[in-house]
Amino acid sequence: MHRLSADRRHRVRFTLNGKPVEADAEPRMLLTDFLRHELGQTGTHVGCEHGVCGACTIEIDGVPARACLTLAVQADGATIRTVEGLAPEPGRLSVLQDAFRRHHALQCGFCTAGILMSLDGYLRRHSAPTEAELREFLGGHLCRCTGYTPILAAALDAAKTLREVPAHA
């Protein structure tokens, strides 16, 4: 039995973008705050804090997840990917990120990290998505700038590039 007491901070360890990380958290600390405040990884954005807007979407153990609907202590032992892990090397964008840049799929950029993390996993699992499938999937995110059309275009373009040169992922 591991009961973590409310009024103490507890060690939380997980794999973040391929590297082991650790820091302390109270049981009530949200994973968003743990990533941003304890680990200094501010790429994950905090929007509504109740799971509606999608800005904080990350990947936990291979599936998309709202970091604001996850406790840091729940993530102990997990494998986590965030937007900081997308670029293959400093100064080079991933295929998906580059498609977002070319299609102007962001303006203020607040929702972008979450949408990129959702789509990155989706395109790995679905190599030839239809526009309708992508629309359905993007329904889990709010963007108030773009009207979604350039996001769809970028996702379709990235899917095509990944089919042609999968090694560039």
């Binding site: 039995m1 591991h2 009961r3 973590l4 409310a6 949200l30 406790l71 202590v73």
Partner: peptide, 11 residues
């Protein structure tokens, strides 16, 4: 919005 305090037990 942050939760109030609670103990956490991973069963």
């Amino acid at each position: 919005m942050k939760p109030a305090r609670f103990d956490y037990q991973r069963a």
